[in-house]
């Protein structure tokens, strides 16, 4: 279960709304490498994880991703607060506004809705951790791309820099979880069986 802390993991205080920027950053909410997918990826993968250290790490990083999901939502919420109809039309935010007004909804920057196909839960710990490492790098690149857009706006770039740094830390931890996994397997053939399925070596036989 979870407990809620009534604060953001890192403060978000944006003074000037910018609907155009909000449409770019919303990708980190519900886009292909966004926080909706990240949190669901790790929190879904942990059940089939054969090693409790690794399941524990997936839980804790998945939990931190939920805090990041809230931070990204706060950024979008504050960037679209008190918009005039004129600003909505000029910024191109009118298309989003028609379907959601100013509600926060998970979609990519290009308008593609969130979809569970944006992450995998394969039931094979080597595969899942390799995906997780790639996912952290993809999110890091997205933040690099956002940072080029927000250079002159410290209210936005400070929390984005924080979120980007967390991707690198998570990459390191998933890498270490993969090392833990390797230590439990036979280095002559890491792929001889799936430790989350072929228990006692019987899984593959009828």
């Amino acid at each position: 279960m979870w407990n809620y802390e009534k604060r953001l993991q890192f403060p978000v205080n944006i003074k000037k709304p910018d609907a155009k920027l909000a449409q770019a950053i919303i990708s980190q909410y519900g886009g292909p490498d966004g926080k909706m997918g990240a949190s669901m990826r790790y929190l879904s993968q942990r059940y089939a994880t054969p090693y409790k250290e690794v399941a524990g790490l997936l839980t804790d990083i998945g939990t931190e991703e939920l805090a990041h999901l809230e931070m990204v939502a706060a950024i979008i919420y504050q960037l679209t607060r008190n918009l005039s109809m004129d600003e909505i039309e000029k910024s191109g935010f009118d298309k989003y506004y028609i379907d959601h007004t100013l509600g926060i909804w998970p979609q990519a920057a290009g308008g593609v809705p969130f979809n569970a196909n944006q992450f995998q839960s394969k039931g094979d710990i080597i595969t899942d951790l390799t995906e997780d490492m790639a996912a952290e790098q993809k999110a890091r690149t997205t933040y690099d791309n956002i940072l080029r857009l927000v250079q002159d706006c410290p209210d936005v770039s400070e929390p984005i820099k924080f979120l980007r740094a967390r991707e690198i830390v998570h990459f390191q931890r998933f890498g270490e979880a993969l090392r833990i996994t390797q230590d439990k397997l036979d280095a002559k053939n890491f792929y001889a069986f799936n430790p989350g399925f072929d228990t006692n070596g019987k899984g593959a036989q009828k």
Partner: peptide, 17 residues
């Protein structure tokens, strides 16, 4: 460390562009 996003100096790898 909070502003950087990690308490570990060796994991501080900022984007410079």
């Amino acid at each position: 460390a909070y502003r950087i996003g990690t308490i570990f100096p060796e994991l501080n790898k900022p984007f410079t562009g």
